[in-house]
């Protein structure tokens, strides 16, 4: 295992070959913003919040998809990156109906956190106000498309950790929607094991447990590390 030394925001840090900039940064206390990344499943580099500047490269790179290299000089929080991240959040808030005040995840939501952390205090573009469904057909969980940011964490955790691949995306572009099986109501899915992993990894209130009202939903995804370590190292660490 070869060790790579690099600079992140002026700080000398080390990582192991094959590790992403994102992981190395977080391990050394540099919290790069993210929405689609969740530890324990594969990365897709879709939310673009974790983009960083790498010296000598013209393009901004998704830190969750880029491995560390010896001598790399990485900047994670320049003014340009901050302004891009705020604008991306504005796009997200304008895309669907994110009404924090009436959301089960109010106060716990990663999207809400991101807006606060990155100083996105109002949306300068038009809200799109799409008319979207809420699927409460499952006996324990609900899916509110209004709050979905299409990060596909649920798709990945269901496929990679649970192995069911109940979820996927249908359509494309701004019309993409999370679907269970052939788009039938979640409660009628043949493949869903009702394990609830998707609910726990969902960053917003799009997937939620029934019976929770505004601000009451709590999510816990420690199970991911537990399962992944168990599977890879045969160690069951609680």
């Amino acid at each position: 295992m070869s060790v790579k030394t690099l600079t992140i925001d002026g700080k000398m840090v080390t990582g192991i070959a094959g590790e992403t900039i994102f992981n190395v940064a977080w391990n050394s206390g540099v919290r790069i913003p993210r929405l689609c990344h969740v530890g324990g499943v594969s990365d897709v580099g879709a939310c673009r919040l974790c983009l960083v500047e790498i010296e000598g490269q013209k393009k901004l790179m998704a830190s969750c998809m880029t491995n560390v290299e010896e001598g790399m000089v990485v900047r994670t929080n320049t003014e340009r990156l901050q302004s891009h991240r705020r604008l991306i959040l504005e796009l997200l808030f304008a895309e669907r109906n994110h009404i924090c005040a009436v959301c089960v995840m109010n106060g716990q939501c990663e999207l809400q956190d991101m807006a606060e952390e990155l100083g996105m205090d109002h949306v300068r573009m038009r809200y799109l106000f799409p008319k979207l469904e809420v699927d409460t057909s499952h006996e324990r969980f609900g899916l509110d498309h209004n709050r979905c940011i299409l990060c596909t964490r649920c798709v990945r955790v269901c496929d990679e950790v649970e192995g069911a691949h109940t979820w996927d995306l249908k359509g494309r572009g701004v019309n993409s929607l999370i679907i269970a099986d052939l788009g039938e109501p979640w409660g009628q899915s043949d493949t869903c094991t009702s394990c609830g992993k998707c609910v726990q990894v969902c960053p917003t209130g799009a997937l939620f447990s029934k019976g929770r009202t505004v601000g009451e939903m709590r999510k816990d995804r420690r199970f991911l590390k537990y399962i992944v370590t168990a599977r890879e190292k045969h160690q069951w660490i609680r």
Binding site: F93, I99, A101, Y127, P130, K131, L132
Partner: peptide, 19 residues
């Protein structure tokens, strides 16, 4: 000063925009 979420985002008042 936009004072509170309805002024800032439309918030609950804007829920009717879907219809």
């Amino acid at each position: 000063i936009s004072f509170g979420d309805c002024a800032v985002t439309g918030n609950v008042t804007a829920l009717r925009n879907m219809f």
